[in-house]
Design a protein around this nucleic acid. Sequence first.
DNA 1: GCCGTTTTCGGCCCGACTGTTTTCAGTCG
Length: 578
Amino acid sequence: MPVHNEDIARVFDQIADLLEIRGENAFRVRAYRNAAREVQGLSREVAGMVAAGADLTDLPGIGEALAGKIEEICRTGACQALRKLERELPPDLTELLHLPGLGPKRVHALYYDLDIHTPEQLYRAAKDGRLRSLPGFGPKTEAAIVTALQAHLSTERRFKLAIAARYAEPLVAWLAQGEGVDRVVVAGSYRRCRETVGDLDILVTGTDPAAAIARFVAYDEVDQVQAQGGTRATAILRCGLQVDVRAVDDRSFGSALHYFTGSKSHSIAIRTLARGRGLKVNEYGVFRGTERVAGETEASVFAAVGLPLIPPELRENRGEIEAARNGLLPELVRLSDLRGDLHCHTTATDGHAGLAIMVEAARQQGLEYLAITEHSKRLTMAHGLDSRRLLEQMEQIDRLNQRFSGQGLSFRVLKGIEVDILEDGGLDLPDAVLARLDLVVGAVHSKLHLSRAQQTRRILKAMDHPHFSVLAHPTGRLIGEREPYDVDMARIIRHARDRGCFLELNAHPERLDLSDVHCQMARDEGVLISIASDAHSTLDFANLRYGIGQARRGWLEKGDVLNTRTLTELLPLLRKTM
DNA sequence: GCCGTTTTCGGCCCGACTGTTTTCAGTCG
């Protein structure tokens, strides 16, 4: 059975949880957590490195012991150390650890003093008043646990970035209107453009922090206030989204923004770096002894530890600090670098606007070209095009382009298709028709549960097709709703390189497919990425910003992105020469 | 358990808020 990086990370996180509950050395626990994060963030499969005889201790945070455990997991699919822990502690105990308000100490007490190891047992004990017999557990703690458990039963959820934006933007506007408020910025994973966010971290500067906090808890979307002090408050909005607001002095803006942007792992790395220089970094500034040496801007914080400004999207402690130190930070792609969009639909299939309207919307976005890529006939639900209807649309597009050139406009509509990749790797339309298109985008929409080997083979074969150009939404995942299908992405990327194909980064907020890690893999292999809206309505072109966010998380530069090319640069790339 | 321009031991990021305390432990970010 193939072992993936996620499997190894899960084992290490589980070990860390159990060690923590047992009360083991906190730094040993941290070592397992660091290792889990390191493995998960790697753009290569560790199992492959093991097979190739690589020395895993070269990886940061992996020493002899953890390297041995990784090799064991890759070889046997299991880890004796975890098995041993699970014999001593019930594995479901770690579920309690993830409830808000419960940390290792309390879970320890619950298990060893009251023999509680499931959420259900905990709920009963809270209801029976048994929790109060434990030291440190009072009536408020008990009530908080009951609330947390009720929320837990209705499944804790993360918000997709675009959904979070809908709540964040009006709240920021509300806070910014407060008296004496200077700046309001959403930090945290939102600013780092994570595909989902667990909560919003909002930073406020101004002359009256307490007033800003008071204004926040008075916001009419606030459902319940969980904590409130003079400089910080936590509240839950009616939609269920948690919001933390922190107010700091203006001269601490940079260090506070850096600190609250995270990631936690990045912040720790920066603080460690600072310690080595005899500095202390906290949210109020950078200090040498009691003397403040930086903190007004983020750039000053980085400069204090000898680094250039690292863009928020890279701050995951996945090599960005090393890259910054060596002057190797990428010049990340920006929204304004995009010259066109290579994936959209119209009312001919499942889109909500006609061809001319979609094209006009793309022009209004400042794009120079737009590929129309309808579904093909197998996708009957979407009224997919057969050869005849596709040829009709192509004529329509020709007429539209003629009109543009007649008006002296340089905008160009490209003739494309989002053709279904059939189960055997064949394409859903005849070669003779595909050959007449500017662009063939291929996608898997059926048989999502094939084995990894079959699914991979299917896609590789589609790429072998002479007209195949871009693999749309390469893993098929829907965030929070549908897992990616099981494919060997490393092989697909190498094959794309060999066959002159490209991968799409689908910018739809439900998809954001490719992941950041896969973007990085593609970049390392020199495979260009098409950042595409997959627009079904005129409003959907605005989603390109989320695609750019994801691309930046994947370290992509302008040159790594297919549709930053001018039309004259692009067209030859779309015609495979083999 | 990891790591090294304070090296093979003794460190390992730092502060706010809450609840149950009466000076602080636990949790969180």
